[in-house]
Design a protein around this nucleic acid. Structure first.
Length: 260
DNA sequence: ATGACCGCGCGACGCGGA
């Protein structure tokens, strides 16, 4: 089962590039972030015509997550537990049933957190603690799961082309990386690092300052696997080249193949 | 990060109905 995460930076702006990539890459499941659309305005037909089931959790202008799946999506839940006052659309879960196992899909768009310090940074860290609690709850249930999305976290210096430039940024500051490690250290596997080592692997390049042409990227889109899901891992890749196409998102897809 | 962007909603604007 090929499962991808992709921050598309606006579904309307990606109405051509996203279907093109789907037709080529043929993922079974896609966790989308930054749809920047309310549910009613999401162009479901684009995906239903290609055989995908569609579940969205949108809001006006900002954020918004969705799941596309060739398999039926069951027990869909919207929003990250732990704060009833949080009205930002950043989290969605659903279950797919494979040949051997049921798999919980957790799609997330973790807050950027800049400027730091400040209220946006406090929100990021609080959100990460809620995500840790959710991962711990799923582990306690022994539900195999994939927690994937735009984490807005550069885990290590090797995950940035110019790490010194990010030292005081909310994506790379020590408390951010500690909060990320606290989630991983529950027993989750960073799928990409289970398959690939070394520097130079990125999932985001800023639109500004020729970042793509200079390969000034960062790796911030991650798929964290529960132990049972990690045992099913057969591949993990970054579809880097689509960043160079017409009207690209500033992120590219990252995907795993799981023998579910 | 940075020389270099992008997407969105809003409002302006044009249009049609009162």
């Amino acid at each position: 089962m090929k499962i991808a995460t992709f921050n598309i930076n606006g579904i309307k702006a990606r109405a051509a590039a996203l279907p093109n990539w789907l037709d080529e890459a043929q993922p079974d499941v896609v966790l989308l972030q930054e749809i920047k659309s309310v549910d009613d305005a999401f162009p479901r037909d684009l995906f239903e015509d290609r055989g995908y089931n569609v579940e969205t959790h949108g809001q006006k202008s900002f954020n918004g997550v969705a799941i596309l799946s060739k398999l039926p999506l069951e027990d869909v839940t919207r929003g990250l537990p732990g704060d009833d006052d949080d009205d930002q659309a950043r989290y969605i879960e659903a279950t797919v049933v494979g040949d051997h196992a049921a798999l919980r899909l957790c799609g997330l768009y973790l807050p950027n957190g800049n400027p730091a310090p400040g209220p946006k940074y406090d929100y990021k860290l609080a959100w990460m603690e809620r995500l840790r609690a959710r991962a711990a709850a799923l582990l306690a249930e022994e539900t195999p799961f994939v927690m994937a999305g735009d984490y807005n976290i550069i885990p290590q210096a090797e995950d940035a082309a110019t790490p010194d430039a990010w030292r005081d940024d909310a994506l790379f500051m020590l408390p951010s990386r500690e909060a990320f490690r606290k989630i991983v250290n529950l027993g989750l596997t960073d799928a990409f690092r289970a398959r690939q080592q070394g520097p130079g692997h990125y999932s985001f390049w800023d639109y500004q300052a020729g970042a793509w042409n200079r390969n000034n990227g960062i790796r911030i889109d991650h798929l964290l696997l529960s132990p049972a899901a990690a045992d099913m891992l057969t591949d993990c890749q970054i579809d880097r080249e689509i960043r160079g196409r017409d009207k690209p998102s500033d992120h590219v897809p990252v995907w795993v193949d799981l023998a579910v």
